[in-house]
Design a protein around this nucleic acid. Structure first.
Lengths: 229, 229
DNA sequence: TCTTGTTAGATTGTCGACAACCTGCTTGTC
DNA sequence: GACAAGCAGGTTGTCGACAATCTAACAAGA
C-alpha cells in the first residue's frame, strides 16, 4: 500500500465557520479595536442562531483578540503601545528559541517549504495585496515554529501571531501605502539555509525590529489622539 | 477622599463558575486524561443547562486542557512524555526571560510577596496537602511573571501553568507520597533577593529540572503501559 | 442645579426542545 | 460464517424563547 497523507476533514460545524469569519474580520481590521459585537445583529447577518455564535466568541476571547464583560458585551481588544512592546519582546525571545530548536531539524523539505512561502510573500507584494502580504509574511516566519517540533511553542506562537497580524493590519490600514520590499525576507531565508545559527538569530531579532519601530510609532500616535478626548 | 482600591467584583455568570469547577476538576486529576465529558450528565449534576456548560468547555478547549472533536465529544487532553518535554523546555526559556524582565522591577513589595507565597508553600507542605502544595509552588513561581509587567508573557505563563499543574497532580496522584521538602524553594527565594541575576536564572533552570526528571519518568511509564494495550 | 429613584428599552445569559450526526447492533443476503 | 444495509439509541450541534441584567432617559425631591 502506497504511503499517502490525507489532510484532516474540514470542521463542518457552524461554530468553526463563525470562528474563521470573525477572526478574519478582526485580523484584517474590518472590526475595529474596541468595537462591540452585537450578538443579535451578527447572528442575523450570518443567518445563524446565537448559540454557536456565542461559543465562537468564547473561543476568540480565549485566543486573546476579543474581551468579554459579563452582561455588558464582547469587544475587540484595544491596541496599546505597551501591548505591542510586550508582544514584540516576547516574540524576539521565542524566535531565538524556535530557531535553536529548528536548527538541527532542517532538511530539504524545510528548505523547499521556506522557498515556497517566500515566493508567496513576493507574489502578494507584486499584486499589492497588503492583507495577503501580512498573512504570507507571518506564515513564512511561522515555519521555524512548525519545524521546532514543540506543540506548546507552536500554540504560543499562533496566539501571538493573531495579535501581531492585527497590529500590522491596523498599521497598514492607517498609512494606506504598500509595505516595504521583500529584501529583508531574502536575507532571512538565506541565513536560515546557511550554517551560522547565531547569525540567523541575530538577524531575526533585527529584521522584525524594523517593522516594529514604525508600528510602535503608530500605536503611540493612536494613544496620544485618544488621550485628547 | 481617601485612596481606596476596590477589587473587581466577582463574575456572577454560571459560565464563569462552571469554568472554575471544571478547571479545578481537571487540574487536580479528578477528571482523568482522555476522559470524555458527557454534556448532559455534567449539566444535570451541576443543575445547569447545556448552553453555559458548552461555552465553558469551549474556553477550556482554547486554554489547552480540553480537546474537542465535532460530533464525537470533548475530552481531557492526554499527557504524553513529549508534551511534558515541550512544556518544560519552553518553561525554561520563559523563566529566563521573566527573571530578566522582573529583575530591575524588584522592590520591597516584591520581596514581601515572595516571602508570603513561600510561606504558603511551607504551610501546605506541613499540612501534607499535596494538591495545595502544587498550587502554591506554582503561584510562588508565577510571581516573577506577574512582576515582569508584560501581559502577553503572563498569559502565556498561565496557559503553561495549567498544563504543568495537571502534570504534577497526575504524578502526585500516581505515586501517592509527599512531594520533596521546600529547601529548593529556599534557595530560589534567596537568589531572587540577591544581586546575581545569572545565578538566579541558572538556579531556576536546574531547580525546575529536578522535579521534571521524575515527572518525565512517570509519563514514559504511562506510555509504555498504554502501548501494551 | 444636583442628586436619587424609577422605568422602558435593549442586550446578554440561560433554558428546554429539536435536528444532525455517530456508533453499535441487528437483520438479511450471499 | 462473512459482509453490507439498515435501524435504534445516545450524544452533540443548533434553534427560538424567556429571564436577568445593564443603560439611559426621565421624574421627583432636596
Amino acid at each position: 500500500m502506497a504511503k499517502l497523507d490525507f489532510s484532516p476533514i474540514a470542521d463542518t460545524t457552524r461554530r468553526a465557520e463563525i470562528v474563521a469569519l470573525l477572526r478574519r474580520a478582526i485580523l484584517t481590521g474590518q472590526l475595529e479595536p474596541g468595537q462591540k459585537l452585537n450578538e443579535l445583529r451578527i447572528s442575523e447577518q450570518m443567518r445563524v442562531s446565537r448559540a454557536p455564535l456565542r461559543e465562537a466568541m468564547r473561543e476568540l476571547v480565549q485566543e486573546g483578540i476579543l474581551t468579554s464583560i459579563p452582561y455588558a458585551g464582547t469587544f475587540v481588544i484595544e491596541v496599546t503601545a505597551k501591548d505591542i512592546v510586550d508582544a514584540y519582546s516576547l516574540n524576539q525571545m521565542l524566535d531565538e528559541f524556535a530557531i535553536e530548536q529548528t536548527w538541527p531539524q532542517r532538511d530539504q523539505r524545510f528548505f523547499d517549504e521556506l522557498d515556497r512561502r517566500h515566493e508567496a510573500v513576493k507574489q502578494a507584494t507584486r499584486a499589492k495585496d497588503t492583507t495577503r502580504q501580512i498573512e504570507t509574511a507571518l506564515q513564512l516566519h511561522g515555519l521555524i515554529y512548525e519545524w521546532a517540533d514543540n506543540s506548546v511553542l507552536l500554540e504560543t506562537w499562533q496566539r501571538l501571531t493573531s495579535r501581531l497580524q492585527m497590529y500590522f493590519a491596523l498599521h497598514q490600514r492607517a498609512r494606506n501605502e504598500p509595505v516595504p520590499a521583500e529584501d529583508l525576507h531574502e536575507t532571512y531565508v538565506t541565513l536560515l539555509k546557511d550554517s551560522d545559527m547565531r547569525a540567523a538569530q541575530r538577524h531575526a531579532r533585527e529584521h522584525i525590529g524594523l517593522d516594529f519601530e514604525e508600528l510602535l510609532a503608530y500605536a503611540r500616535g493612536l494613544e496620544t489622539r485618544a488621550s485628547k478626548n
